[in-house]
Computed example of a mutant assay.
Amino acid sequence: MPRWFLRALATIAGVRIRTRGIHPAARSFFIANHVSWLDIPALAGATGTAFVAHDGLAAIGPLRWLCELNDTVFVARHDRRSVAAQIERVRRALSETGALTVFPEGTTSDGTGLLPFKSSLLSALDTGADHIPIQPVWLDYGKVTRDIAWVGTEPGLDNALRILARWRPVNLTITFLPPLTESERANRKAMAHTARHAIASAMAEAR
């Protein structure tokens, strides 16, 4: 039900999704760039993935309900004291959900480049997750990327209303890049570096 609901939400928002690249396994860990709140219903609708999200969303009633419906793992990105507990929650989610996505930039960008990738939560993949593919994903809104991006001080509601008011569709291409090799997932920093490089290379080739 969450996957159907989120797919319908993306459709209502005018998103037309095209997928390309290497088809992901049913149980995967996705490392994706982050441009808009549209990323979540679109990627969830396409793959059924759950997400690792900032705990600030948990304070917003409707968003919390929607996130919990989709088995979201809430983390406090700025609380270094709870990193170990957060990693354990991610590990537990990996064993309970079909797929899980993290946005390692930690926030949305304007979509024309990539912010640094934070690697702390990738420690959940250091042990006991060798059987789960780790796959970089590039979310590309094409020519309307800057218009869609949720950045700066724009309130979330204003951004949502602005996007919903568009009369033209939002074309989103979800590119599933090759899963990381054994050597590329040697540790969390290697995973973050390799995933960021893969997404950045795909962005550069498309220009």
Rank of each mutant, 00 (worst) to 15 (best):
R3Q: 12
L6D: 00
R7T: 10
A10C: 08
V15P: 11
R20N: 15
S28G: 03
F30P: 00
I31H: 05
I31P: 03
N33C: 14
V35N: 10
V35Y: 07
S36N: 03
W37H: 06
A42F: 00
G56M: 12
L57H: 02
A58V: 10
W65N: 06
W65R: 15
C67H: 00
L69D: 00
D71Y: 09
V73K: 02
F74D: 10
F74H: 01
A76H: 10
R77A: 09
H78Y: 14
D79L: 08
Q86G: 14
E88P: 00
V90G: 06
V90E: 04
V90T: 03
F103C: 05
P104Y: 02
T107E: 11
D110F: 11
L122I: 13
V137T: 10
W138T: 06
D140F: 01
R146Q: 15
A149V: 02
G156K: 02
G156Y: 05
N159Q: 15
A160C: 14
P169E: 01
T173H: 11
F176G: 04
P178A: 08
P179S: 12
T181Y: 09
A186E: 13
N187W: 06
K189I: 07
A192T: 09
R196L: 14
A198F: 06
S201E: 15
E205F: 14
A206S: 11
R207S: 09
